[in-house]
Computed example of a mutant assay.
Amino acid sequence: MRKKERYDFVISTLEKKFGVMDTELSYTSPFELLIATVLSAQCTDKRVNMVTPSLFRDYPTPEAMALAEPDVIFEYIRSVSYPNSKAKYLVGIGKALTERFAGEVPQTMEELTQLPGVGRKTANVVSAFAFGKQALAVDTHVFRVSRRIGLVPQKCTTPYAVEKELLKNIPSGKISLAHSWILLQGRYTCTARKPKCSKCELKEACRWFEKNHASAEL
Rank of each mutant, 00 (worst) to 15 (best):
M1T: 08
R2G: 13
K3M: 14
K4H: 12
Y7E: 06
D8P: 00
K16P: 01
G19K: 08
V20Q: 14
D22F: 01
L25E: 02
L25T: 05
L25S: 04
L25R: 02
Y27E: 13
Y27T: 11
L33D: 00
L34I: 02
A36E: 07
S40C: 03
C43E: 10
D45S: 08
R47E: 09
R47I: 12
V48Y: 06
M50P: 02
T52C: 02
T52D: 03
T52R: 01
L55K: 05
F56L: 09
P60A: 13
T61M: 10
P62F: 09
P62M: 10
M65C: 10
M65P: 08
A66M: 14
P70K: 04
P70E: 02
V72S: 02
V72I: 12
S79L: 14
V80L: 15
S85D: 04
A87E: 02
K88C: 03
V91D: 05
L97T: 14
L97I: 15
F101V: 09
F101N: 07
G103E: 13
G103I: 12
E104F: 08
V105T: 06
T108L: 08
T108K: 08
T113A: 03
V118R: 06
V118L: 06
G119E: 09
R120F: 12
K121N: 04
T122N: 02
A123T: 07
N124R: 07
V125G: 01
V125C: 02
V138H: 13
T140C: 15
S146G: 14
S146Y: 14
L151Q: 13
L151P: 08
L151R: 13
Q154T: 00
Q154H: 00
K155V: 00
K155A: 00
T157D: 08
T158H: 09
G173M: 10
S176E: 02
L177W: 09
L177N: 07
L183E: 09
L184T: 00
L184W: 00
Q185L: 11
G186I: 09
C190G: 12
C190S: 12
C190W: 06
R193L: 09
S198C: 10
K199G: 01
K203Q: 10
E204C: 07
E204R: 14
A205R: 11
C206D: 12
W208N: 09
F209D: 04
E210H: 08
H213R: 11
H213M: 04
S215V: 13
S215W: 03
A216D: 09
L218C: 11
